[in-house]
Design a protein around this nucleic acid. Sequence first.
DNA 1: CAGAATCCCTCTGGATACTG
DNA 2: CAGTATCCAGAGGGATTCTG
Lengths: 130, 130
Amino acid sequence: MTETTDPGRLGPEHRELLGQVLDKWSLEVLDRLCERPRRFNELRRAIPAVTQKSLTATLRRLERNGMVEREIVSTRPVGVEYRMTPLGKTLQGLIDALLEWSATRLPEVNRARDRFDDAEREAEQGSVSR
Amino acid sequence: MTETTDPGRLGPEHRELLGQVLDKWSLEVLDRLCERPRRFNELRRAIPAVTQKSLTATLRRLERNGMVEREIVSTRPVGVEYRMTPLGKTLQGLIDALLEWSATRLPEVNRARDRFDDAEREAEQGSVSR
DNA sequence: CAGAATCCCTCTGGATACTG
DNA sequence: CAGTATCCAGAGGGATTCTG
């Protein structure tokens, strides 16, 4: 290592970017849109827990960051379709990996949480704080 | 099972888990701890923007989720060392990929943001809303 | 050194109602 | 259908002060 100059160094811009892309609903929205383009209410139904307001905000943010595209479809009641941009598609592998990781590791994490919470409760009863 | 049954379907637990692991400071903390174990103030210095409170909260959360371990080192003023657990290390590849993605794609994202913001400003001036 | 405890304030996000 | 507009409560996070 010829002087790695501290490789972990990330600027605030990177934190912000990842924050916008990885927030509460973005992952699921992106995951859905990776499958195929979707309309607004289609997305809502696909992600029942999201509110209309949050979904709108999420989509706007993703659109602003160049991850998704919005197209107005001149059908009868008028529809709006969202689809991944080429830039957004560069995320697909990462998204898949994240979702898969969370799916496979959740049991272990739950056990870890139980252990932690138990130890904490003990500590409260006994005298050992932190 | 060949029968993917709507592959994107993630439960609230997965959302929550990823939320805890991918939040504002976790990524950077984990990235640092992947390099080597670190002490508390060492981490603070490595991530100047984080406050003591947020760092404490982040570490506690990561510890609770089984991602990092905390060990009290009986040196003179007493030290506390944080290190990745085996479970936490399963994240390393993902973290690297995310940080690299954000580093390489940031310029494109910035251009997309500029385009978006310009279009928005135009729309405000003209009559075309959304 | 490594936090815990407080105060305080912003910002997110839910619920609800309305519109082109 | 696909949003916008309000209202509002609650969590998150910063700054500061104190401690074993």
